[in-house]
Design a protein around this nucleic acid. Sequence first.
DNA 1: GCGCCATCAGCAATCGTTTGCAAGTCAAAT
DNA 2: ATTTGACTTGCAAACGATTGCTGATGGCGC
Lengths: 329, 329
Amino acid sequence: MRSIADLARIAGVSVSTVSRALTGKGTLNEKTRERVRALADEYGFRLNVSAQNLRLGRTGAIGVLLPLGHERGQHLSDPFFSAMLGHLADELAERGYDLLMSRVLPDRANWLDDFVRSGRTDGVIVIGQSNQGAVLEAVGKTYRNMVVWGASGADLPYLTVGTDNVAGGALAARHLLERGRRRLAFFGNIDAPEFVARERGFLEALPEELRASTEIVPIHLTPESSFAAASEYFAAGNRPDGVFAASDIIGMSIVAAAAEHGIAVPEAMSVVGFDDILLARIATPPLTTVRQDIAEGARRLVDLVLQRIAGEDVSSALLDPVLIERGSS
Amino acid sequence: MRSIADLARIAGVSVSTVSRALTGKGTLNEKTRERVRALADEYGFRLNVSAQNLRLGRTGAIGVLLPLGHERGQHLSDPFFSAMLGHLADELAERGYDLLMSRVLPDRANWLDDFVRSGRTDGVIVIGQSNQGAVLEAVGKTYRNMVVWGASGADLPYLTVGTDNVAGGALAARHLLERGRRRLAFFGNIDAPEFVARERGFLEALPEELRASTEIVPIHLTPESSFAAASEYFAAGNRPDGVFAASDIIGMSIVAAAAEHGIAVPEAMSVVGFDDILLARIATPPLTTVRQDIAEGARRLVDLVLQRIAGEDVSSALLDPVLIERGSS
DNA sequence: GCGCCATCAGCAATCGTTTGCAAGTCAAAT
DNA sequence: ATTTGACTTGCAAACGATTGCTGATGGCGC
């Protein structure tokens, strides 16, 4: 009982009839349809997806790519990514698509091109621009079914979905100012466009004199390296009273490093993160942060890529961030 | 330039020749092979994976299933899962397999059977038994290419890979005893076999009189709910001086809840977690925990499922846990 | 009783590969 | 000159589904 032909033999009908019965396409006598379906159930028969896809010229799967531009092997450690992944899985499943996941170490310049041209998926969702802007642009010019989570650009040749990072940075800035903080610092990765936009929004929202005095501390995205960087920063005697971290993980690392240097949070220093991962709530102290609506983001990503596949034309989406005040500021 | 036939025409050879040139299988004049390959590169031609898979009777993909037995929609929030996922992705990619990810809400009893029989993947890795023991057993009896991350059972009809949870629990117990702790408590989910085993190992390693006095606090796996449970527990006036948490996330929640109730960690209470997720290191205080070797686990999972697919016979694997001492105890 | 039309189901081509078999070529051995 | 064998390559049949076209069947009206 491997193929449609076997079932056809058992049912005493032709393969076309079985196909029509099972897919519901075409016209068929309701009685025959029922009979074939019952038989299929009885024998536990399922259509072969590969064959179906071959015939239909599609794959029924969407690729989700996580470029690990900066941190070899550890990007997924940020719960932001897994939350996004989870929502994408749900969203795609709901629409009948499989999710093909691939972590890529973009050491070869054509990692994306290779993936796209392998034809394993009908479309691609890239989570994060990382430092792969050039690659994305190159592929985006010729390949249409791609949507990227990250910063939207003036006229990027590919679709993006992302939080308004500039606005998010501004939220953080205004919050720290309201708290009376004046010795400010920004901790973040400076390769990735998302983070650059957060930094820009933060700086732009500050009065001019503070803008100049605000320190920018470059950081990598793994917990260890951001902890190390923060620790070093404090060890060098720096004592900001307000810190904006480009992600919650960075924010939590800063809090931990501050504790080691006897800096009380929030009394002596306010920390604001970005993302609002679930753990932000159970951090000690709970982390004030700029929330991204990941569920909505996932929904939009899937919407856009499927619409592109369907040939509709669509445009990039920008989501509004919200400031969540908690104990760390 | 869609198919092998087009390329064959351009190269002036037959389709079989192109196939042999590109796949490297069969015997072919080295010069022709080179020529065809060069042409393929020039035109950016790639074999169609669906067709290839159909012909070869495989899919080239392994399904990774995350059953969300207890906590609808939030299981992936535990960084343990994403770390595992990341390692699986790497391991599978290295061996030329795609990773088809699926989060399942096991509300229908036949979620696993359906997936397996859809034929979308050559094998299945299930991460965590959750409360789906019965379903796993049922499918394991007839479907061979399945490996489950979790607790190994006496004679389960399916392969498992997992940490020796009983030993892990014992490590935690001995550590707390060494620290002089005597008023003990265990926080953990009691549905999932992994957690039950941790609890059992913990209790068995205690002297009899403590075993009876140790409290078992049932908990769910999301950060919020474990925080709430811990908070409630402390609010009721309970003041253990040593706590073993069934996961790092639970451990961190306990620390956070303790802080709210003015319980100093580690001075007044030691907390030991389980997993050693990356964040354990940057928690405040850094979390003492029982480390699971996730990378090794992923490697074994992939090994086993591929060996099963190849028809070899193999047996379940048990990994050794290690206690990592940090600031919380 | 005949023709017409609607409905239903089968035939066979097709999607893009792989691969057993056989045919062709060419050089060496007889 | 013929046989032998090694090497290369092509032919065509799969893999398991979908679907346009066509033919069969039966009901109905005249």
